[in-house]
């Protein structure tokens, strides 16, 4: 290490990270080129990249990527609106919290994918079913986080609100929600992850257009490069959405620190 001492840390970090990634890809290449793993199961990095480039330029990847992202965002936004509204209603009253929290905790511990069979038998295998399941599954993290954020409002702020004779609606807008913002954002990040997962599952089960059904078809047709390219795209969606929200979080909650 002593030879690197003169290089500042913020330069070294990314360089070493990239070196690590290069080693990972090189290993991946060696494993596939050496025939250690069958090509039907693991496509080489080159073949995956080719499939990705071809799929994006001439194939259906761009449309499928857009379909999955839109599905995820639609469900997530709907769920967030419902969750913040309901969470504020529940969070504002200690009585409502006492009555509803156990039910919410139970509903949350239910794997969201387990309601898919019910959704199918209620509305069939359409896009509405997928959207409904995404909303149902991704509502819980934000909802519980909002309730949590309201429960954690400093008691003295409640006193202040009383002295100022704030109405309930004013309390929500002026004290409750601003206080709950960090909790809500953390919940929304979790919700977005859930929304992506449920979008993929929904597409796989219903055959709706999107990356979920695309990778399922690629696997069934033994087209490994396409399968890995699809998985990489899904990873990219996860990466971008998670980091995007982290940046928003840092921006919005900067005043706190």
């Amino acid at each position: 290490m002593s030879a690197f001492r003169t290089v500042p840390g913020w330069v070294m970090g990314p360089i070493m990270g990239l070196a690590g990634l290069a080693v990972f890809i090189a290993l991946w290449h060696v494993v596939t080129a050496g025939g250690l793993v069958s090509k039907a199961f693991l496509s080489s990095p080159g073949a995956t990249l080719d499939a990705l480039a071809y799929g994006l330029r001439k194939g259906d990847f761009a449309g499928q990527l857009a379909a999955t992202v839109l599905r995820m965002l639609n469900g997530w936004l709907l769920a967030s609106i419902v969750a913040i509204a309901l969470g504020s209603l529940i969070g504002i009253s200690a009585t409502a919290r006492a009555y509803l929290r156990p039910t919410l905790a139970f509903a949350r511990s239910l794997p969201a994918s387990a309601v898919i069979p019910i959704a199918i038998s209620l509305v069939g295998l359409g896009p509405g079913m997928v959207l409904g399941v995404i909303v149902f599954g991704s509502v819980w993290p934000t909802l519980l986080a909002t309730v949590q954020g309201f429960a954690n409002v400093e008691p003295r702020l409640r006193d202040v609100a009383q002295v100022l004779r704030l109405s309930r609606a004013q309390f929500v807008v002026k004290i409750g929600l601003p206080n709950a913002v960090p909790d809500i954002l953390a919940g929304m990040r979790l919700s977005l992850t859930v929304a992506l997962i449920l979008a993929v599952i929904g597409e796989m089960l219903s055959g709706q257009e999107g990356l979920g059904s695309a990778i399922l078809l690629a696997a069934r047709a033994f087209r490994a490069p396409e399968l890995y390219a699809g998985i990489a795209l899904l990873g990219l969606i996860g990466f971008v959405s998670s980091y995007g929200l982290l940046l928003v979080d840092r921006r919005v909650t900067r005043w706190r620190s």
């Binding site: 039907a40 199961f41 992850t193 992506l196 997962i197 993929v200 599952i201 796989m204 990356l211 979920g212 990778i215 399922l216 690629a218 696997a219 069934r220 033994f222 490994a224 399968l227 890995y228 699809g230 998985i231 990489a232 899904l234 990873g235 969606i237 996860g238 990466f239 998670s242």
Partner: peptide, 13 residues
């Protein structure tokens, strides 16, 4: 960040 469900088709294969 790769959603684990994305690996279901691969794992099945």
């Amino acid at each position: 960040p790769i959603p684990s469900v994305a690996l279901l088709p691969l794992s099945l294969l």
